[in-house]
Design a protein around this nucleic acid. Structure first.
Length: 201
DNA sequence: CCCTGATTCGC
DNA sequence: GCGAATCAGG
C-alpha cells in the first residue's frame, strides 16, 4: 500500500486527533506503526500541533541528541532556554510519600480530590448474580493492580477501591476480546436488563 | 511484557 | 520517499 492523498489525509486527521501511531496503522491497514511514524515525521507534523498546549515541564527532554552536531546559532534570541523557573502549576497528586510514617490519607490529597459522587461502578452494592460476584472477588486477588497510566487496550479497566486513597487500582487482567474488562468483570459490568429492573429508586 | 514516539539508514 | 530495525522511554 502506498501513501495516497486520501490515506495521508486520514493519517493527518487521526494524528491530530490524538490517535497513536499503532492505532492509526491498524485503522488504515496495510501499514505498520513504524510506517505511520515515519510518514508523520516526513510530513513534519510530529508535533501534534493544535489546541492542547502541553505543560512546560512535560516530557520534552531530548535525552538522545547524541549527535555532536551542536546546531542552531540561535537566530531567535528569545525562548531558547527551557530552563524556566518551573513553578509547577498543579502539583501531581501522586508523587512523594516516602516521609509519611503513618497518615492513612494525606490531607493534601483530600483537597485535590473533591470527594467523588460519580464513583465508578463498584461491585459492592448491587443486585448481581452471586456467582458473578464470587468470581470477581476471586479475580481481584490475582489482579495486576495497575495504575491509570498502565492501562492499555488489553488490560481490564475495572477500578477497585477508593480513588481518594492509596488503596486504589485497576484490575489489569487480560480483557475479553473487545470488552474493556476481563471476563469476570464483564460479568458484573454488563448485566442483562432483566436482572437490574426493579431498583425502584 | 505491554505500549509510546523518535531516529537511523538501506532500499 | 519509504519503513524495518533500533532506540529511549512509560
Amino acid at each position: 500500500m502506498s501513501w495516497t492523498d486520501e490515506r495521508v489525509e486520514m493519517l493527518k486527521k487521526m494524528w491530530n486527533d490524538g490517535k497513536s501511531a499503532s492505532q492509526i496503522a491498524k485503522e488504515l491497514g496495510g501499514v505498520t506503526r513504524n510506517a505511520v511514524i515515519g510518514k508523520v515525521h516526513r510530513l513534519g507534523l510530529s508535533n501534534r500541533s493544535g489546541s492542547p498546549a502541553p505543560a512546560a515541564g512535560a516530557s520534552a527532554a531530548p535525552s538522545t541528541p547524541a549527535a555532536a552536531a551542536a546546531p542552531a546559532p540561535q537566530p531567535e534570541p528569545a525562548a531558547a532556554e527551557p530552563a524556566a523557573p518551573a513553578p509547577e502549576p498543579a502539583a501531581a497528586p501522586v508523587a512523594e510519600e516516602a516521609a509519611a510514617p503513618e497518615p492513612p490519607v494525606s490531607p493534601a490529597r483530600r483537597n485535590i480530590i473533591p470527594a467523588g459522587q460519580p464513583l465508578p461502578p463498584q461491585p459492592s452494592a448491587n443486585e448481581i448474580s452471586p456467582e458473578a460476584l464470587a468470581k470477581v472477588n476471586e479475580v481481584e486477588k490475582s489482579a495486576k493492580k495497575l495504575t491509570l497510566m498502565e492501562l492499555t487496550e488489553r488490560t481490564c479497566k475495572w477500578p477497585v477501591g477508593d480513588p481518594a486513597t492509596e488503596d486504589f487500582w485497576f484490575c489489569g487482567l487480560p480483557v475479553q476480546q473487545g470488552k474493556p474488562y476481563c471476563e469476570a468483570h464483564v460479568g458484573v459490568a454488563f448485566q442483562p436488563m432483566s436482572s437490574r429492573r426493579d431498583r425502584r429508586r
